[in-house]
Design a protein around this nucleic acid. Sequence first.
DNA 1: TTGAAAGCGCTAACAC
DNA 2: GTGTTAGCGCTTTCAA
Lengths: 336, 336
Amino acid sequence: MPATMKDIARETGLGLATISKYFNGGQVRPQNRKLIEDAVKKLDYIPNEFARSLKTRQSRTVGVVIPELGNAFITSIITAMEDILRKHDYAVIVCDCRSDVRREKEAVDFLIHKRVDGLINMATDMTGAHLQSAVKENVPVVLIDRLIRSLRGKVSAVVVDNAEAADQGTRYLLEQGHRRIGLVLGSEGLYTTRHRLQGYLDAMEDFGLDRREDLICYGNYTMDGGYAAVKQLLQQEEKPTALFVTNFEMTLGAMLALNEMGVRVPEDLSVIGFDKLDMFGAILSDLTVVKQPQNVIGEEAARLILSMMADDKVPAQIVTLSTQLHEGRSARSIEA
Amino acid sequence: MPATMKDIARETGLGLATISKYFNGGQVRPQNRKLIEDAVKKLDYIPNEFARSLKTRQSRTVGVVIPELGNAFITSIITAMEDILRKHDYAVIVCDCRSDVRREKEAVDFLIHKRVDGLINMATDMTGAHLQSAVKENVPVVLIDRLIRSLRGKVSAVVVDNAEAADQGTRYLLEQGHRRIGLVLGSEGLYTTRHRLQGYLDAMEDFGLDRREDLICYGNYTMDGGYAAVKQLLQQEEKPTALFVTNFEMTLGAMLALNEMGVRVPEDLSVIGFDKLDMFGAILSDLTVVKQPQNVIGEEAARLILSMMADDKVPAQIVTLSTQLHEGRSARSIEA
DNA sequence: TTGAAAGCGCTAACAC
DNA sequence: GTGTTAGCGCTTTCAA
């Protein structure tokens, strides 16, 4: 039977209120402070969070619902997020819904029942139906990576400017003189896929180039898909002179495919990738990539949810972050 | 103000005990059942887990402490684990300690304060000091992937037979006639590294081959490290005829390095990798690999912790799983 | 089967 | 500053 505040009270001869105040940062006479600290040590006292939560109506817990855990982009965001939240004494419950709409709703409901104080969600269900219970229970929500139109004004969000990101990469290639630029996208219909396609098309249009379906491939954001997409793009008669691959896993797949096919980068083909990750260190350092600020996404999401949990009158806001073009050696001028 | 059981009681005219029984699967007269269900709907009642936890002394929460989240082997275990635990209505709090001993202890203490019912840990601190508070508070612990000697008998564990795994891969190459077999290991001193090295050495010894330091490289279990290790191994005068790479990230790095160097697999060099993951689908399907059963690790860990949480007299046990050799086309007979 | 009532361990209002 | 006390919303005897 673990010690309770009552035990501390008996041990020190103080009242419960004093001890409670001590734990909650109130004013306590130094000698009593010492008394309490000694008793805590002696009795191995650990505050009972259940009782505290019952009273304060806060779990100091945040739920995170994501489409999959085995994705480097997502885990790096979570790592940054968890770091900040834990520093603020919040626990993070992670639910992987495997990109399944039904599982996603179950996860949200589960977390609401667990009484999380806030919810961070990289959404699978773009209708937002899964978040209804959160909205109904007034649990603050922060979306990451993808916006949900029907929830506009009701929830906060942290996204990157995907159109700008794609524009950045495409424009860079265009400026190097490339005109046949292959684009490897994620799954058709996804929020980020749509915006990245738009950015690409906009940049192309600025250079007077029309949409050409034979230059656009869907690689489902998987290594596998990127690999296949590249093989397909390069099997055509009129091969692209440059490739823009729009996430990290696909970039890896693309590099493997190119290596296998004996295509030299950038001699035979220019390549711009996406999201080089720290953990891969030096290997792909020569790659020119459009980088998303995963750390900042995680940090901003944490900050947003913290502020919303602290004050339920904080209005919903959308934070849009910019990507950055990292110049490596994998994309070069077509005249060279 | 959310509805409470009292509200349901007032609404239905029943007593609290009946309603509580209803929620806990007890016998309730059908007509009252109906009454309660209607009231729950009408009032949007959600049971207060805080109050329940206060009474039952259970959080229905499991803490998971891992060295890093951005590792495919780890996340695939977590995914399997979380799946089972959530089905049993347990939430999973994940703490990434970034392979830092201090952070790891902080994470464990944090989780103990959060009153998790159980702890699953892929340990960074092999002394086990970080788990003292868990042991003291009688919180059941399941180690995964790595055993801690000082905790023997006190905690359960799920590990893979790493020596066997390495023996498997090495022996396969030996049987194909290879004698100069390069080995790419994780960080020196790690539990799995040591055992995998041992398995390799044992197999070599069985074939009358002595340890040769120039064939052994440490790649830190990173893609980067695997890449560098392979480059180093193949820069030597007397090149290996085969390579055994002992985790997934390093295998990826190795393949990239080999591709870059123009080394054909298996024509110029046989390669055995580790841990092909589902998410990479077809790409590496030609790779011969030693596969760890991540799903089973996760599932067994979940089962173990569930049984220990359900009954504190369940004795500690160690589950050792076997790896499997998946024959692809990347390793072949040296005579061929 | 159901209801009344005690109490889990904490917080916070209030009185001193 | 400190102590007393009344709940927070649930589970669980015990008696009916």
